[in-house]
Amino acid sequence: MADVDGRNEAGRVLTMRLIRKGTATSIAAVGILFLAQNTAFAWGDDPGGEGSHTGGNSDSQGNVSASATHSQIRISYPKGGGGSGKTGDLSTIDPNWKPPACWYEPVFTPEGLKNFVKSSGGDGDVGIHQSWFGTGLWTDHYRDGKPEDNMDDAWTSAPGYKNYNQGKKGYFWRSVAPDASDPDSWQCGRIMFWQPAGQVPKIPHAPTPKMLAEYAYNKVKVPETKIELKPQTKSTVNLPTWVWLDKGTFKDVVVRAELPNTGLWAETTAKPVSLHLDPGTDDADTFPASGTCDFNQDGSIGTPYKAGDASQNPPCGINYLHATDGNPYQLKASITWKITWNGTGGAGGDLPDGTFQTTQDMNVQEIQTINR
């Protein structure tokens, strides 16, 4: 067995175990992997595919042929999803929160693993950052019972298996990372391991309903924040600009994530709760003073402008104090979405609120004859 150590652009050590049974290690294979910048993939798969909705390819028994950068988590939208208009991804208000960087999933039945080794020649992934080439290591470890090193911090030893565990009910599980260049993806260092049917492994980074909810958070698509303004084209100094959103414009979005062959699922719900206005200049007042307009009970925000309201302060709006001079103000409007989740076994809770922001030009004129 040959160990090849290299460094990626971030300076982290990348360790690959490469072997060709009865031949020298393929230098060409090493070059291909380094060009892939740490993302190992099983030959024949599309390494550029996102794979988030149905993951990689799988057969009727759930055996997976895709790489460790493809998840089998299935995403659906029971409610919302953005419709046919423009949509965008939520940004979390918590700068320290991020979706899971890596986890483990079931990928092969015993028969499926045996067939994979035979049909592929043994070129594929046993983990996010570890690929085996040629049948040698696959047969040594998964067929002939020889131990092999994990790639965890302690370099623990993984006991081998006899004849791919044929005759047993269960799956071989493998680590998955949507982005193998994420340093946190190295936390899932176990090579592919066995788990009996109907059991989720009790190890760090095993899938949970909350993990699926966090994964689904990253798949929430919300409508573009397009607000109604009056006046629409140009505001006037010291005359309020009314801002509102009609009812029904923003509705709850529900994203469901399911991990096949585990019984685990979660639904993440994004509920619009407020609109925040940033006038784009300090020379402006907002209504209310905080700049945050809450949703009304009917799902609307603010009150539509009507004739005779020009001199009134709106429940949601802006009063510019100085005119623009060729360069419009950049009005930022962002919707805050409250995020909750529920999942397998009655689990549930809150996740950090999300926001989606759009920016539009605001030209402001000054009319000297106006006297309030």
Rank of each mutant, 00 (worst) to 15 (best):
D3L: 14
R7G: 00
E9L: 11
A10M: 10
I19N: 11
A24W: 07
F34H: 10
A36N: 12
A40T: 13
F41G: 00
T54A: 14
N57H: 10
S58P: 02
V64F: 15
V64G: 03
S65C: 07
A68L: 02
H70Q: 10
Q72I: 04
G82S: 05
G82L: 01
S84T: 15
D89N: 14
I93K: 12
E105T: 07
F108Y: 15
E111R: 08
L113S: 02
L113G: 04
S119L: 15
S120D: 12
G124M: 03
G127D: 10
I128N: 00
I128H: 00
S131W: 03
D140G: 10
H141A: 01
Y142E: 01
D144I: 04
D152T: 11
T156H: 05
Y171A: 04
R174S: 05
P183N: 03
R190S: 11
F193E: 03
I203P: 04
P207D: 12
T208C: 11
T208G: 07
L212K: 01
A216V: 08
V220P: 00
K226P: 03
K230Q: 15
K230S: 14
T236C: 04
G248N: 05
F250N: 01
D252C: 03
V254C: 01
W265R: 04
W265D: 01
E267D: 15
E267T: 13
T269A: 05
S274E: 14
L275P: 06
L275T: 08
H276M: 09
G280Q: 03
D283R: 14
A284F: 08
D285S: 10
P288G: 10
A289T: 13
A289Y: 05
T292M: 09
G299E: 10
I301D: 02
G302I: 02
P304Q: 08
Q312I: 07
L321Q: 15
L321E: 12
D325I: 02
D325T: 15
K332H: 10
I335S: 04
T344M: 08
T344N: 03
D350K: 15
T355P: 11
